[in-house]
């Protein structure tokens, strides 16, 4: 492999790592929101189920009595409708898309860092490849 090829591969890899890492801050924020909301929903659901009034009063009233559970659940549902389950795995989605293309070129990508992996390749019988 020539010097210029190595430089190009490094430049190519640098950009891929930039692309993958650019998704990290927003992904971290969404993961934080999702986990906090999930914990909040789980705890409030526990209290809602343990409340003796829940089995006696109508559903609407029991939800009114437990506003934390109601708000947390509704927010969670809305976030899932808006696609939070994809936003929390955005780097993996981008990485998997890139890997689909890189496979043709005897290349691969580390899922979390975006580092390039050079795979062994057979000769193309045209004398151009190393």
């Amino acid at each position: 492999m020539s010097q210029s090829d190595c430089e190009d591969l490094k430049a190519f890899e640098r950009r891929l790592t930039e692309v993958v890492s650019s998704y990290r801050p927003s992904t971290f924020r969404w993961r934080l929101i999702l986990s906090a909301l999930s914990v909040c929903t789980a705890i409030s659901a526990w209290y809602w189920l343990k409340d003796p009034r829940t089995t006696v009063v109508p559903l609407t009233e029991s939800l009114w009595i437990h506003p934390v559970f109601t708000v947390a659940t509704v927010t969670l549902i809305v976030l899932f409708i808006l696609g939070i389950q994809k936003l929390v795995v955005a780097p993996q989605i981008i990485t998997s898309r890139t890997r689909n293309v890189l496979t043709d070129f005897a290349l691969d990508l580390e899922p979390h860092t975006g580092k390039l992996i050079l795979k062994p390749r057979q000769s193309n019988n045209n004398g151009n490849n190393t």
Binding site: L9, F105, A106
Partner: peptide, 10 residues
């Protein structure tokens, strides 16, 4: 340098 790595059919 990237596209030349593609495995061509025999």
């Amino acid at each position: 340098s990237i596209l030349g790595r593609r495995q061509l059919p025999a």
